[in-house]
Design a protein around this nucleic acid. Sequence first.
RNA 1: GCCCGGGUGGUGGAAUGGCAGACACGCCGGUCUUAGAAGCCGGUGCCGAAAGGCGUGAAGGUUCGAGUCCUUUCCCGGGCACCA
Length: 856
Amino acid sequence: MATHCKEYDFRQIEPHWQTFWQENRAFRAENGSAKPKFYVLDMFPYPSGAGLHIGHPEGYTATDILARYKRACGFNVLHPIGWDAFGLPAEQHAVKTGTHPAANTQNNITNFRRQIKALGFSYDWDREVDTTDPRYFRWTQWIFLQLFKKGLAYVDERPVWWCPELRTVLANEEVIDGKSEVGGFPVERRNLRQWVLRITAYAEQLLDGLKDLDWPESTKRMQEAWIGRSEGAEVRFRLADEKLGDLAIFTTRPDTLFGCTYMVLAPEHPLVPALTSAAQKEAVEAYRRRTAAKSDVERMSESAKEKSGVFTGSYAINPVNGAKVPVWIADYVLMGYGTGAIMAVPAHDERDYEFAKQYDLPIPRVIAAADGSDTLPYVGDGTVINSPGYDGLPWPEAKKKITADLAAKGIGKGTINYKLRDWLFSRQRYWGEPFPIVWVSEADYRRAAAVRRDLPAQPVTFVENGVTQYALPLPDQALPLTLPEVQSYLPSGTGESPLANVPDWLEVWLDFNTGASVPAAQPRPAGDAWVRARRETNTMPQWAGSCWYYLRYLDPQNASALADPAALHYWGVPDLYVGGAEHAVLHLLYARFWHKVLFDLGIVPQAEPFRRLFHQGIILGEDGVKMSKSRGNVVNPDDIIQSYGTDSLRLYLMFLGPLEAMKPWNPKGIEGVHRFLHKVWRECLGEDGQPNPKVSDTVADAPELLKLLHETIKKAGEDIEALRYNTSISQMMIFINAVQKAPQVSRGTLLTFLQVLAPFAPHLAEELWARLGGAGSVGHHPWPQYDPARLQNAMVKIVFQVNGKHRGDQLVPADITQEAAFEIARTHERVAPHLLGKSVQRMIFVPKKILNIVVS
RNA sequence: GCCCGGGUGGUGGAAUGGCAGACACGCCGGUCUUAGAAGCCGGUGCCGAAAGGCGUGAAGGUUCGAGUCCUUUCCCGGGCACCA
């Protein structure tokens, strides 16, 4: 079973055991097992052409250790891997080379698979998934159809980020500081027809569900901030010119209504033209034009310095005091939030204050500061003043009262707003999941609606050249809708994807019952259900496939459902999810949203997909800065494996520091753990490769060594559960250092130690286990139990302090009394001088630890 | 600006309010060797010959006792950023 090398030849040992595991399918997870399940999930990688980055093995080693440990503890462990393989780089490569992105993607996957296998992770390779496989994305499309049917998908022409360089639209989240996240190219605003998912319908649930999750607090808070719930009121102001109607605003501080001295509309607000007086027309229009021409980045950076705005010439009436207040437009008010209009209360809002100062608007105070200060703007606690009917109330109470009073008068109501926006779900790209949607005429849609039961309550439509088009979903049986071959992967440049350039795919006769289609250029087939249709040319964003992959692992081959309900019940959701903090908001929020929809549909039994989440930290270059090609400080896993072996790499990655910490790579450090593994080898085997002569079947280990062994079992187990691998490794080092000093060691002790080592350095552990006569695979043996009795010592070291200062220590019986300990202390040669001539005031005695003598 | 993390030897880092610096890197000395490498033994926070003193970004506080708890403050990293 084992190899026959005489030295620790990891280049021979590691592939040997990897082959062994593969041939024995050692890590297969069983559906329907009677064992308790444990599901430990890695964020699956995008298989880039650059190959694995050192950050991948960091997180993957962490989960692998846990997976191997849990298997040894008797769990049926699901530990899968797959490929998030749709994505822009493959498409850009295709544009450049003209080869199909699928070909490039498969090459990259092959390379990733080879690299990951060389790291010896205990994945169940029978469950590998690939988001670009039609058998996979069929279900991505299916889930989209469920969202569509539920009214959670719609189309909207809206300004979106357009990147001329990438020739595609980007989501807000993909734009960083006015540049594309991928490539760093400049972006601009354009109006395009887009698919949008109504994630805002789940805002409250997404916020509420965070409470019970075992996630890093920082990540929870980031999601909270992203959802951005705020409670306030919508208030309607009459306009002075009655025929213009009302102006609705949102405020979180209705209690400051008496302090409102002007109103501000977003420049894009639809009421602006009607509100603008003849005298102000020119100024208002110029301002609107200027705002529209600015990118959001310019708008933000400029206005961060200085507020700007223009008076419209109109006035509104403050509903609480009848005051006539001017209506302005300014770009510090955003159309996309609330009603796109605000009441300005300059005394109690920093932005309004700044604006009022700039344009000389009145700033009356309506909240008295709790601390009596009179500086403005004031946004702290206090009581209401200058507000007849509410004076003297603490402002949160006034807020409730005024909101209720407004509601009673029918001019306002309490509302909740969220910063969260609906999710822009389409991309003008080739390399993504096609939408299983066609566009048909109203008449054809009505005919389909008469027989189809899978349409939304409200049809999804858009108007094109004055004609209303209706979105008709493909029937389930027509899935997957695959990508057509194209001549060029270059986007059309007009905002449509390359799919718009494939007429035979694009323009079809479609049977709305079966989803069957023929090119429109051919004659219409016989039958009533055939309608003229144009396919949706957008594709889905990369987030789509990663929104539900953790479910597909449960039952990856299933052709009739995304997963068998029995598998969904047995495995449930991951018990642990490990991945980078860079996904704190987007992926993790989108996946939660989809999961909640699937939960509401009764497809999954849990409301949340990821109960326990952990972010591994970033590994920096040797120089303490982020690894990058340009800096030349990149560490390549392949090179490390070649020089030290994957066991050393795995161990070092975990020994570097706390898993969640950002920490620099130190090339000398890996030699330290490599040395440790060599030492383990030498303690087990002699120079001839046979068991070391000091290994004995007859000699009993010293109690101290056994105690250390049991401490090691205990500490390793506890640390693994808590993902504190650095300290468990140091404990194993302490143990092996003790073995080294012992003249003899029992075979049983070494075998037990190898079991503890196995999750961390599985190849070496297997090899030594076999050579020391252990049966079968070390990973298949039940995790050793520590004996609590062995952890006790009859004698313990007690520390003597005088006035809190360490003055000496002494080995004493563990159950020594305070009196006896004091007797030892007062005669202790290093302690006694500090007691001389002093009187003892009191003593603090902590058994087994400390005796602190307080003297005058 | 706001919200999170975090500051401990030359380095990475340990430390349920109870011996600060485990473990490892590096360095110094020794051993083995013709020599080196590897291994092994010993040392290694700072000041001091020693006794002892000082030490966890800084300053206060609570406590018999603080790296750990509280207040203020500085620095570094991350996220958000006109969301009314």
